[in-house]
Design a protein around this nucleic acid. Structure first.
Lengths: 230, 230
DNA sequence: TAAAAAAAGTGTTTATTAAACACTTAAAGA
DNA sequence: TCTTTAAGTGTTTAATAAACACTTTTTTTA
């Protein structure tokens, strides 16, 4: 077989942009950077970078995220490829949006400061460059959808968490208040949490039991086709 | 503001590949082409083409589809961007998968013959080149998901259809038998069908009433946030 | 040291939705 | 006129979702 090459076709620049979500026990946050180069220098932006020849997109997105936060092995998912012809005034560039869920306590605070990055509550995030606002909107919609069908939220929580934190997180993602008793009994029916003997004393006098996610039970249930619909 | 250009970054070829679904009253079908050039010449493939500098992806996908079928204004949706480094042995190429839903009766039969394209029942489709099998799998999953949350199926049916055809379509998409009475009462509860005075006599002696989709009512319900969950 | 405050924890009832189920009707063809 | 074939039509039961309020524990304060 002869390998011909597609010599007469147009080539384009391909960027990846990451919508990085965090959660601080109260609200969802977004990690943004102040752009250090033209065009749109000084404005807020998602973190991004260009795909290199020897990478696939997942690798490129992980590299970009690692570069900003120092974190490895982060939950990321490809969202959508944005291609409006004039989306970047500097050059014909397409961008593949990825979203990432990280435990807000874990990233390298020095590193993000060096990169002039900053956490913003989702509702108070500034206007972003190019089509980044649309990317965030899409990411939010996907996150909501995922949260309703699998227990994705654990990526955003510390290893040990209280039921209240878990509920607050779901409330933040879904954008509505949930009933405490219904939420807990729903979640208990999944049977994927381990109740610890420890209590978290930071938010009440009585203290609240800590739980952790039982990855093993979870994987088994996924294999069995269990439905985690909230 | 000075527009700098990203001069040192790698550029890549970007293809679009279309998963084209049709429905023939019995089963879902896929429109495939026999590839006329190397690499993998003579094997079956999704239809595809390269993104041109002056197009966005939606336009490119529509162009590719129109070129094969002669059809305009087809329901298409971007699915996923495939980026494995060696996915195309000829050149470093990424591909954005789109899926399309068309009324199998409408396309230009001559044109597809000229392009050595052919309809295959989904279950009897041949092995495809590159990562096209994976693309089809993803498309099928998306179609299933969409069918459960909005009445997407009308794109696959002729303008007038019987309730039986509609049910068969959903059965084909969801991959399971549905109860006739439950299906009809569910669909009636959406209140987006117009019952015509005509009957289709082709499949029974009694004849079955024809219906058509009420786009106007549907749009109003979408605006009101109505949930079309099957 | 008793009362107030503050969040944790815990079940039951009711409403809604989904699933299971079978006979009658209409018309053509033998 | 009897047989055949698919169309058409409601009700009952099961499962899931939603609504709902009081008790417990411990610290702080009067």
């Amino acid at each position: 077989m002869t390998l011909s090459s597609y010599t007469n076709e147009d080539k384009v620049l391909l960027a990846v942009d990451c919508i990085i979500f965090g959660f601080d026990s109260e609200e969802l946050k977004l990690l943004l950077v102040k752009r250090g180069f033209e065009p749109e220098k000084g404005k807020w932006s998602l973190i991004g970078g260009f795909l290199k020849k020897e990478e696939n997109l997942d690798i490129a997105a992980a590299r970009v995220l690692h570069h900003l936060t120092g974190l490895h092995d982060i939950y990321m998912e490809q969202l959508y490829t944005h291609s409006k012809v004039d989306r970047d005034p500097a050059d014909r560039t397409l961008s593949v949006a990825y979203y990432a869920l990280i435990d807000i306590a874990k990233h390298d605070k020095e590193l993000i400061k060096q990169n002039s990055a900053q956490w913003f509550p989702l509702k108070k995030a500034p206007e972003l460059i190019f089509d980044h606002n649309e990317m965030v909107k899409r990411a939010m919609a996907r996150l909501k959808r995922r949260a309703l069908s699998k227990p994705i939220g654990f990526e955003l929580l510390p290893e040990k968490f209280t039921m209240r934190q878990l509920q607050k997180l779901y409330e933040a993602i879904l954008g509505k208040k949930l009933d405490k008793r219904n939420f807990i009994s729903k979640f208990n029916s999944f049977d994927i949490l381990i109740k610890l003997d420890e209590k978290d004393m930071s938010s009440s006098k009585k203290g609240a039991f800590l739980f952790k996610f039982d990855e093993e039970k979870y994987s088994r249930k996924v294999e069995d086709g269990f439905n985690f619909k909230i």
